[in-house]
Simulated scan of single mutants.
Amino acid sequence: MLQLNITNETSQLKAVVLGIANSNGSIPKLEDCYDPKSREHVLNGTYPKEEDMIEEMEAVAAVFKKYDIAVYRPKVIKNYNQIFSRDIAFVIEDKLIKANILPDREKEYIAIQHVTNQINPINIIELPKECHIEGGDVMPWNEYIFVGTYTGDDYASFITARTNKHAVLALQQLFPNKIVKSFELRKHNTDPKENALHLDCCFQPIGKNKAILHKNGFLIEEEYNWLVNYFGKEHIFEITKDEMYDMNSNVFSISEDVIISEKNFTRLNNWLRKNGFIVEEVPYAEIAKQEGLLRCSTLPLIRE
Rank of each mutant, 00 (worst) to 15 (best):
F277C: 05
I125G: 06
S23N: 15
D104H: 12
A285N: 14
K78P: 12
H114P: 12
N225H: 14
V147W: 05
N269D: 08
P48K: 13
W141A: 01
Q204V: 00
M244H: 03
W226F: 15
N270D: 15
A61S: 13
S85L: 03
T190L: 09
H132P: 00
D154H: 02
E243P: 03
I27E: 14
R303W: 09
V168T: 00
K208N: 09
G232F: 07
C33G: 04
L219P: 02
G135N: 08
V168D: 06
G19K: 02
K95N: 06
K66Y: 08
N117V: 01
D87R: 01
K49Y: 14
V16K: 09
K193W: 10
F265V: 00
L272S: 02
T151C: 03
E56S: 07
D104S: 14
V42T: 11
V282H: 10
K129Q: 11
P28L: 13
A21C: 07
K274N: 09
V42C: 08
I20C: 09
Y109A: 04
M139V: 13
E143I: 01
E262Y: 10
T298F: 08
F237P: 00
E286G: 09
K233N: 15
H188F: 03
D246A: 15
F84R: 03
F90T: 03
E50N: 08
K98R: 14
R39A: 06
P192H: 10
D246I: 03
E221T: 14
A161P: 02
H214C: 10
I124P: 01
K289R: 14
H132Q: 13
P176C: 09
I88M: 11
F237M: 00
Q3D: 11
E50L: 10
L43C: 13
I69N: 13
R186Y: 00
M1Q: 06
S253T: 10
T151D: 09
H198T: 10
I220R: 07
E184L: 01
L227D: 12
V17I: 11
L43Y: 13
D191W: 03
G217D: 01
H188V: 00
E262N: 15
R73G: 02
I112S: 06
C202V: 11
Y245Q: 02
Q113M: 10
D200A: 02
R86Q: 07
W271S: 10
N22E: 15
G135S: 10
F90N: 01
K29W: 11
G25L: 06
E143Y: 04
I54M: 11
G25Q: 08
D257F: 05
P36W: 02
I278M: 11
Y224C: 08
L102H: 13
I54C: 14
S38F: 09
I278P: 08
L199M: 06
F277P: 00
Y109P: 00
H235V: 01
E50Q: 15
L301G: 10
K181G: 01
A99N: 04
I88G: 01
V147D: 03
E286W: 09
G45S: 04
C202P: 05
R273A: 12
L294F: 05
A59K: 05
I278N: 12
S23G: 14
K49E: 15
W271Y: 12
Q173K: 15
L43R: 15
A211L: 06
V60A: 02
Y47A: 11
D200P: 07
D200L: 06
V251M: 07
I97W: 08
H214F: 05
F203V: 01
I20F: 00
E234H: 13
K165E: 07
